[in-house]
């Protein structure tokens, strides 16, 4: 299989994976609690459209996102 076509790059695969796991999939309405690494707990509405990289950066910078 041509590696130019089916890219095995770890970075791209992880970005694609994070985008799907955090941004896509079935949405369950309600609230949940997510913490990011050593950051304080952040309360998120589950409907929030998380953008994997941006969200991680926002959370790491301690910015609270309130979707209620």
């Amino acid at each position: 299989m041509n590696n130019n076509v089916i890219d095995q790059s770890k970075d791209i695969t992880i970005l694609e994976l994070l985008d799907r796991v955090l941004n896509k999939g079935v949405i369950l309405t309600g609230d949940l609690v997510i913490s990011v690494a050593d950051i304080d707990l952040v309360y998120l509405g589950v409907k929030l459209m998380l953008s994997s990289v941006e969200t991680m950066e926002q959370l790491k910078s301690g910015k609270l996102i309130n979707t209620k």
């Binding site: 796991v21 999939g25 079935v26 369950l28 949940l32 998120l44």
Partner: peptide, 10 residues
């Protein structure tokens, strides 16, 4: 299957 978004908790 239908994948759930990360953080789907009940």
């Amino acid at each position: 299957l239908l994948p759930m978004r990360f953080g789907s908790v009940m």
